[in-house]
Amino acid sequence: MTRKMRRTIWSWLALSPLIVLILFPFAVMFITAVKPAEEALQSTWWPSTFQWSNFIKMWGNTNFGPALFNSVYVAVASTLLAMVVSVPAAYGLSRYRFKGRGAVQQFLLVSQMLSPIVLVIGLFRLVAWLGLLDSVESVIFVYAAFAVAFSVWMLQSYFSTIPADLEEAAWIEGASPWQALIRVFLPLALPAMTVTAIFSFINAWNEFVIALTMLRSQESYTLPIQIFSLVAGRYTIEWELVMAATLVATVPVAVLFAWLQRYLIRGLALGAVK
């Protein structure tokens, strides 16, 4: 116990500079968000009163609700789509040696190197050609495609650590490949899939450039675009409202993290069973 205690102290001590650095922007965000408008520009740390009404004002002024809904919709839908196509692909790549396997792997790696900014002109033309401009679905489609490369890559390396003997044993016992997959493979792969899904969710949740280019009406804006529009080129920036908006936009993901955290660790541990 004392040994664990000592380790606890050392660990927290070692992490503390980083923790300060991580929490600093959150503190800035929170304190600015509750400052009365006339104090927002002053560099004092504590506001004279906590002006919670900033949040209500922000919600009304900034079209926040619909943007939050769009962001959640885009992130969830693109993650699901990406997983539906990535899991079989990763399974195929990790279980079978076949002609063209190397080429596929290289293609996936290469397609990750194209940043949305680099591709954005071409992507825009593609979406315009499909007649999907300003539809949230077009963004889902693009995010999912960008997530596929990464997800297949991640999943494949996790899947390779799950011994194929288990499924083969199930086949020998008379299970069909589907049954073997569902009963034997999936339970073992689920943690790794969760981790990958989280990566893809976060990327979609954060993405900026594609959303900025494809979405053109406020009804279809996602959160990053909505918040960016509060600071970009306006003739005045109401920092307290901007920070209130970022704070509210951040909390759901932070909570999601806290909630998934145990699962995440287990996933990382289990996924690597050798």
């Binding site: 954005v120 315009a128 080129g233 306006r234």
Partner: peptide
């Protein structure tokens, strides 16, 4: 369609090009 000032020209450019 409301567009932030900073990206107006970019948006018009991509719009016209597409």
């Amino acid at each position: 369609e409301v567009v932030p000032w900073d990206v107006l020209l970019q948006k018009l450019t991509t719009d016209i090009s597409g």
